[in-house]
Design a protein around this nucleic acid. Structure first.
Lengths: 194, 194
DNA sequence: AAAAATAAAGTAAGTACTCACTAAAATACA
DNA sequence: TGTATTTTAGTGAGTACTTACTTTATTTTT
């Protein structure tokens, strides 16, 4: 006879920054909520549905995250880290042409398993609060520097424009898939001569 | 002694296409709902709040619109007409350069009292269903023709790009006000030589 | 008075969140 | 090392409250 041991606080993996151990059930809640929030919307998804999909009692959500908003906060913290990671190569680049080139490539480097994080970010833009227009500031500053170096007439507006284009392409990829935007990618590369 | 007469079914104005007379209370409901839906979101605004702001009993909403979704439908019908009206000048233009010029000006011609209609449109893009990517098709086709006439290399992608830019500018105007985008407007005009 | 329009009160199905409780793990300690 | 104690993860039934929508009553118009 075997004894099936299933410790409730078994540590399955660690969060992105390894701050604290995450039990498998807690992880299940986070994943279920991410999927539901990003596809259906924060306001329309009841906590009961999250619990069901996570295979967990509803009460556990509140044990771990205090309230529904706390659950969203936890997810968004993760989301922000992942989004920053994708933009990081642009910030570290020292060559202006490569900077432009890399920002154009950015939306195409989003890993498919992270689409939901991005979708949630864009969605929450329209559910107030989580929207922070200053979030892209470092990127825009970097682009402005690059355009300046390359002798563009109006680097400020050029930077603003390109960052908007990149955002549009990101949204399009999320909606219609990566392949649909590939021709647009080379179009942009030609346009900016990179 | 005066009798204050306040006829309940007083006809205050007509809908955009003059199909049917709209009583003032029905109009009040539509206006209150538009304001609340566009600023706070369809899902988070209860019908009781709409009734309160419209100065109307809650039941009246259901008399006029059957259900909450019906109220949203009525508003969105109006919204679509108003959005189309703003884009109309582009579709009627026969000169390619003026076509480009007019599409750039489009977001700046949105009347401030119609901001809420636009805001609602963008918001619902992320609450599924009401989003229809084909809605901009006629505009993009027109732009493609214009760029083609002007000898651009890749009119298809140029049209797609400009329509995305116009959408971005629209969103920025809604968020940060018209003035904040004026310098961007002349920047675009220079870029497209119009 | 009949019919239409409006208001008020009510309903049933959710909703986020709580609470009393169980079981297992980690810790304290003899 | 073995036993008692505390801490933690987890459950699921319940609670107060909100929601969209209905029904009944009241007022207004003809």
């Amino acid at each position: 006879m075997h004894r099936i041991i299933n410790p409730p606080n078994f540590v399955s993996n660690y969060s992105l920054y390894g701050k604290e151990p995450v039990t498998d059930k807690k992880e299940n809640i986070l994943l279920a909520a991410l999927q539901l929030f990003s596809n259906e919307g924060y306001n329309v998804v009841p906590t009961s549905k999250i619990a069901k999909q996570a295979g967990v009692s509803e009460g556990l959500i509140f044990k771990h995250f205090d309230n529904k908003k706390g659950l969203l906060d936890a997810i968004m913290e993760d989301a922000e880290l992942r989004v920053n990671q994708v933009f990081a190569p642009v910030l570290f680049e020292t060559d202006p042409i490569k900077t432009i080139s890399k920002i154009i490539e950015t939306p195409f480097n989003i890993r498919e398993e992270e689409y939901n994080y991005w979708r949630l970010q864009f969605k929450l833009k329209w559910e107030t609060e989580y929207y922070n227009p200053q979030k892209m500031k470092p990127i825009i500053d970097k682009l402005q520097w690059a355009f300046s170096e390359l002798g563009y007439k109006d680097p400020q507006n050029e930077a603003e424009l390109l960052s908007q284009i990149v955002e549009s392409v990101s949204v399009n990829i999320l909606r219609e898939g990566l392949k649909s935007q590939l021709k647009f990618k080379s179009f942009l590369q030609q346009k900016y001569k990179v």
